[in-house]
Design a protein around this nucleic acid. Structure first.
Length: 391
RNA sequence: GUGAUCGUAGCUCAGUUCGGUUAGAGCGCCUGGUUGUGGUCCAGGAGGUCGCGGGUUCGAAUCCCGUCGGUCACCCCA
């Protein structure tokens, strides 16, 4: 037996029902909100993510699926969606402000566990171009509406991390602080000191508690424009009755974020989605000067937190005589009626069983020329008019 | 990258401790019959490189080593 690749999934059975339900809701909802669906390649230049996500990030240093193609190109399977959207926007819509949605596979080379896979699906939306607080508001509002329809008790956590320049200054100060107090840091945190200083702040190791408590706060380094913009966004959210919780330790895993960051978190503390503002991403990629804000949901994380949606089939075509059942098939096709049918002409009892297992409402028995309602057990003579009346 | 744990039929699992005929069960599947309150019931049947590779042994699902995969946790993250 050839085993499947580690961390990949076969989405089948009830899981596939959930997947399609989420996908359909996502695509419909954001289409109606005015977001254009955009499908970018799964295969991208390595350079795109080296630059965008940031070379200090683990995603870039350890977690990318890299390959060289036969033409010698350095490629990766995309680890996230935003960078590609920004590349597209620069190429085709540079002077516009556009709203995009995307849905598809992402790849990260990590050890799989619950809510984490090597190939996983993200559903995301972005607003790219000239951005203001209303853009931030609608990304948060629209995606909160979406996720609450699926997981009603989802909470919004929000923070500002200041500009990239602010952050650079802050990291320097923080680095010196932790360096001087190195002896008080846990082993894990000490490892983060050189490359991922900020991450020490969300250590949950009790050994770090005291040092972190006394550490300089990012708040003191955030410029006034950023602070004011954050305050006014919070006011807008407040007056729109959107509940939020400010979480000052909330940082994102990607370096391109600035100012606004937020997360959607379930009552069981699973982060099902996250996003923020990325005003410098286009510049980092040398694609021009435009801004963006966006969010990405983990589809599998949503799947793991919802129940199986209702599922039933309206018609099942039963029969053991190939001439009769094919004649019925064509008759139904002609009237554009969709129906389930057995994969082959197995014994009648098996077909009945299959129909019941598919939660079928009407069973069309071609052996007897009848239509049976499997809920009420009413049987009537088959005619196409009876079925057309069901519509 | 680290650690724990698991891998036997389509599925859930027994058998592994302590090596020994032809590897089992339930469910599911298939066929014939039965059944119209049609998922029942009866009879029969198909289906297994015991994850893979190597080693020990007269003999390995069982012991040893390696490897791949699943699950979970750490790290990190959606």
């Amino acid at each position: 037996m050839i085993e499947q690749v580690k961390g990949t999934q076969n989405i089948s059975g009830n899981e596939s029902l959930k997947y399609l339900y989420i996908q359909k809701l996502f695509l419909n909802r954001f289409k109606n909100y005015g977001y254009e669906y955009l499908q970018t390649p799964l295969l991208e230049s390595k350079e795109l993510f080296d630059k965008s996500i940031g070379e200090s990030s683990e995603i870039v240093t350890k977690q990318m699926y890299e390959l060289t193609d036969k033409g010698g190109r350095d490629l990766v399977l995309r680890p996230e969606g935003t960078s590609s959207i920004v590349r597209y926007h620069a190429e085709f819509n540079k002077d516009m402000t556009s709203k995009y949605s995307y849905f598809g596979s992402m790849f990260r080379y990590e050890n799989p566990q619950k809510n984490r896979y090597r190939e996983f699906n993200q559903a995301g939306v972005e607003i790219v171009g000239v951005i203001d607080n209303y853009s931030d508001f609608q990304i948060i509002n629209d995606s909160l509406n979406f996720i609450k329809e699926l997981i009603p008790e989802t909470k919004l956590k929000i923070n500002t991390i200041g500009s990239i320049a602010d952050r650079k200054k802050y990291i320097k100060v923080l680095y010196n602080y932790f360096l001087n107090n190195k002896d008080q840091l846990s082993k894990e945190s000490e490892e983060k000191l050189e490359n991922n200083t900020l991450r020490i702040l969300d250590s949950n190791n009790p050994d770090d508690e005291q040092v972190i408590k006394k550490a300089p706060k990012i708040n003191e380094f955030i410029n006034t424009d950023s602070k004011n913009s954050f305050t006014s966004l919070l006011q807008i959210l407040g007056s729109s009755n959107i509940e939020f919780e400010i979480d000052e330790s909330l940082v994102r895993g990607l370096d391109y974020y600035n100012d606004l960051t937020f997360e959607f978190i379930t009552s069981e503390n699973v982060v099902v989605g996250g996003g923020g503002r990325y005003d410098n991403l286009a510049e980092i990629l040398s694609l021009g000067k435009f801004n963006g804000v966006g969010v990405a949901f983990g589809v599998e994380r949503i799947m793991n937190n919802i129940s199986v949606p209702d599922n039933f089939t309206k018609y099942y075509l039963l029969g053991t005589d190939i001439n009769k059942i094919t004649k019925y098939s064509k008759e139904l096709d002609k009237h554009n009626i969709s129906y389930s049918k057995p994969p082959r002409l197995s014994k009648e009892n098996s077909q009945f069983k299959e129909a019941k297992n598919q939660n079928v409402l009407y069973l069309i028995n071609t052996n007897e020329d009848t239509i049976k309602n499997l809920i009420t057990n009413e049987v009537e003579k088959f005619s196409i008019e009876v079925i057309l009346e069901h519509k």
